[in-house]
């Protein structure tokens, strides 16, 4: 901001500046187009008549507008069930994850806590190694979590990365607030719930976004643990199934799905179903993240640049 103003007042824009700025802006517009095009293209296909889309030539705008693809997707019982599971795991996973992460972060942010360092290290270590896929799978089996909803929530309660972000934030809060509360006789739980949580809203927003995105986007744990439980699959997993079927060219799933509707004159195709499911599976996040931008940018930079 400052730079721009000063340039105007003190310096003329040189020819080099004009060339640089213009080409930079052109580059940025192209970049935005590359970032957005695949997504906008799928939106256009999802609201275009399916048999018309097959002819190709749909880019950023539908040729024959229709909501039929969406109607078809939302009439499908297994998609509705998948949406329910996706929403449930996002809400429960984010809520539970936030509370647990914040609690541990609060404890390890306390100077005086006897196990401050050891607890911190125990969690940090988990960033650098893990038992791997098969041992984790067998553990879930031994804990009888396979085939349950809780296999989505329990194993991912706390991530070391989120814990560090939260701890750094809480450590940065003015100490005097805690001390005053303690002098007034408040215990750690009261300080945590009544003082630290309300003051930590920016970092809570950041971590909540990370957790929600993680939960909403998960498909691999569904594939591992619940692929045979139809009522526990998520939206991303259903999309994955459509995708892998169209990749192998058999198209069984998508075309069976596509033609299962019946009764209606309009047809749907694997291509339009895939586009519609892609949009349904990503729209909720796309609608939320821009509003949390200033929080997550801050969260990402905590610790990196002090």
């Amino acid at each position: 901001m400052k730079k721009a103003k000063k340039r105007k007042s003190g310096f003329m824009k040189t020819r080099e500046d004009v060339i640089f700025d213009t080409s930079n802006i052109i580059f940025m517009v192209l970049l935005c187009l590359v970032m957005l095009y695949p997504f906008l293209n799928q939106i256009a296909i999802s609201v275009n008549d399916a048999s018309d889309s097959v002819r190709g030539g749909i880019y950023l705008w539908p040729r024959e507008f229709t909501w039929h693809n969406y109607e078809h997707v939302f009439e499908n019982a297994s998609v509705l069930q998948a949406i329910l599971i996706s929403v449930l795991r996002t809400v429960i996973g984010t809520g539970a994850g936030l509370l647990c992460t914040a609690m541990v972060a609060y404890a390890i942010a306390q100077e005086k806590f006897v196990f401050k360092k050891s607890v911190t290290i125990i969690f940090i270590m988990t960033m650098y190694f893990n038992g791997g896929l098969i041992p984790t799978f067998l553990l879930m089996r031994d804990l009888n979590l396979i085939g349950t909803f809780w296999v989505y929530i329990l194993p991912t309660l706390i991530s070391a990365f989120n814990l560090i972000i939260m701890r750094s934030f809480i450590e940065g809060l003015p100490k005097s607030i805690f001390e005053q509360a303690r002098i007034d006789g408040a215990g750690d739980f009261r300080v945590f719930f009544q003082i630290v949580l309300p003051l930590s809203l920016p970092v809570i927003a950041t971590v909540a976004l990370f957790l929600a995105v993680f939960q909403w986007n998960q498909w691999f744990d569904v594939f591992l643990y619940n692929s045979s439980n139809e009522y526990l699959t998520t939206l991303q997993y259903e999309l994955m199934k459509i995708l892998s079927n169209s990749a192998t060219q058999t198209g069984d799933m998508a075309s069976a799905f596509a033609n299962s509707g019946g009764g209606s004159a309009e047809i749907v195709t694997p291509k339009s179903i895939q586009a519609t499911m892609t949009i349904v599976a990503s729209l909720p996040i796309i609608c939320v993240y821009p509003f949390l931008q200033k929080y997550f940018v801050k969260g990402m930079t905590i610790g990196a640049v002090k």
Binding site: L31, M35, Y237
Partner: peptide, 22 residues
């Protein structure tokens, strides 16, 4: 520009793979 540049990061790999392959 920044907001748009973050967008693909928030998509799942399933969605991203669907976009890439299309």
């Amino acid at each position: 520009v920044q907001t748009i540049s973050y967008l693909p990061h928030f998509l799942s790999w399933v969605v991203a793979a669907a976009l890439v392959s299309s």
